[in-house]
């Protein structure tokens, strides 16, 4: 009798371990284009453009964001929507959600902007992304340091290339 219970427990444990060890599967998605907006007028110095989004919208129907695992950002490219808008000294890109802490994803320094390179230098540690993307909504925050006043809205477009995996 004891032997029977032992065998059942070992079998159940093995099934549980095998189920838990399933490798996350990659998700094929297009790059995500988000328009962050800072409402003008804006004054010289650090200003903030934001946009709220739901990562679920770029996922295939059969994948729920709660299943996301091993999430990374491969690249973020920024662009100013209005060519007449002043070019800032620097950009800092952050992500936030209602139930997690806001985190720095990367930045662009003055030297890169001067050489017209708008690729974001990404944070090496990105473990926080999984929790943020699984939350009910996400906020992309872009802080930018203006050299001069701008009396209109300021739109920064972010093109994000995600590396997303999910667990069944």
């Amino acid at each position: 009798m004891i032997n029977y219970f032992l065998k059942t427990q070992v079998l159940a444990l093995s099934v549980f371990v095998l189920w838990g060890c399933g490798e996350p599967e990659p998700i094929k998605t297009d790059v995500q284009k988000l328009e962050t907006i800072a409402r003008g007028p804006l004054f010289e110095g650090v200003n903030t453009a934001t946009v709220e989004f739901d990562i679920q919208k770029i996922l295939p129907n059969e994948v729920k964001k709660e299943q996301l695992s091993e999430v990374r950002i491969k690249s973020i490219q920024l662009a100013l929507a209005d060519s007449a808008a002043p070019v800032p000294n620097s950009f800092t890109v952050l992500l936030a959600s209602p139930n997690t802490s806001m985190k720095e994803c990367g930045f662009i320094q003055e030297e890169s902007i001067k050489s017209n390179d708008y690729n974001v230098s990404l944070a090496k540690e990105q473990e926080f992304l999984e929790e943020i993307l699984q939350d009910k909504m996400q906020t992309l925050v872009i802080d930018f340091d203006l050299k001069e006043d701008w009396f209109d809205d300021y739109t920064v477009t972010a093109v994000i290339d995600w590396e997303l995996k999910f667990k069944n």
């Binding site: 650090v46 000294n89 620097s90 800092t92 952050l94 806001m102 720095e104 930045f107 320094q109 230098s121 802080d143 930018f144 340091d145």
Partner: peptide
């Protein structure tokens, strides 16, 4: 190298 001016 994140600029301190603007840091949250």
């Amino acid at each position: 190298n994140v600029p301190l001016k603007g840091f949250r």
